[in-house]
Design a protein around this nucleic acid. Structure first.
Lengths: 191, 191
DNA sequence: GTCTATAGAGAGATAGAC
DNA sequence: GTCTATCTCTCTATAGAC
């Protein structure tokens, strides 16, 4: 008996492969090999590739939400928390484990598989909007800004910066874009 | 004899399929069917799928650069041109034909296939940075901003907004994020 | 230039033994 | 629960006729 059960190893294996290769390029065989499980084992625990992928995506989404929520709940001003979140350590060239899947046609066109992505981003926009509202009350941000719109822009900068970094084969565009949005968010002096 | 030659039809077909499905999910067979060309025909004009994909990606990149350059060269202030570019008509749920490919592992990990993406985004950042510099000279933007950083952030917002829209299955997050970055770029009043 | 035939490999799953 | 055998399809390409 392994440290974790077979179903868990299959989910972990699938999460890694979805992040690395996407849905289409993730084969049952590769999943099994990485999980050290046989075919019969996989089809005993899951009805097939879609069901296993759904379990893996949900897990990744839940973990991301928990992790980001903890980061954004830390002490400090709203602006400081947002700064820390944008500047935190990231495996930039691997991309976002959730955002990456949105480009996958098989996922984007499947209601079940897409749902966790939609929920994750919706939660993130709401969480950031709340922080921005708080920052406006504290006089950190221009009171005329729409918190929901700024929050959406912040999420976009992160996701788009991953895209630019992967296109460039370098983290430079990522870092540049983050510094750009931070400058716009809290200008050195008035505009 | 067709209106356009076979090689051109193959390239056009590949461009469409790469946009819709990505590299891995685009099969020679599907390319041939959409181009109304046989297998022998395709392998006569191109050495294989990678060569055809490269020709298709280059074409898409060149076309995007030409199109955006024309848009950004229009009359009006720097800010007005950037606004018009961000707000232009887009097929949001289809995603960006170039940015979409950056998430494709087979493309991101292949120097030849990735190069056109890198060049396109580098050009776009430079083009926007030039406009921002001009806008600073005209007093439209805070002179303390780094044009290259703000340009990278603008590109990220576009790319990331495509990602959010596809995840949501709706254009709403896209529109929200664009309005957010525009508000940060030119606040209604001082910050 | 374009066609059809063929081929080795892998995808994704099912069947039935253990 | 896990294993091996088997199956049908598709992928990507090559070969050689026309």
């Amino acid at each position: 008996m392994s440290l974790v059960d077979t179903a868990e190893r299959l989910i972990a294996s699938t999460r890694e492969l979805l992040w690395e290769r996407g849905y289409g390029a993730t084969s049952p065989k590769a999943i099994q090999e990485r999980a050290q499980a046989g075919q019969g084992s996989m089809y005993h625990h899951f009805s097939g590739k879609p069901a296993l992928a759904l379990a893996a995506i949900r897990r990744s989404a839940d973990e991301l939400v928990a992790q980001v929520d903890e980061q954004l709940t830390s002490s400090g001003t709203a602006l400081a928390r947002i700064r820390a979140y944008l500047l935190r350590e990231r495996e930039v060239l691997r991309g976002c484990p959730i955002g990456r899947l949105a480009q996958d046609t098989e996922i984007a066109h499947n209601e079940d598989l897409r749902a966790p992505l939609a929920e994750t981003f919706e939660w993130l926009r709401g969480r950031l909007a709340g922080l921005i509202t708080q920052g406006q009350a504290d006089g950190e941000f221009n009171a005329g800004l729409d918190p929901a719109a700024v929050a959406a822009a912040l999420v976009s900068v992160l996701q788009g910066s991953y895209v630019q970094a992967r296109a460039a084969g370098s983290t430079d565009p990522f870092d540049l874009a983050i510094s750009g949005i931070l400058a716009l968010l809290s200008p050195p002096e008035g505009n």
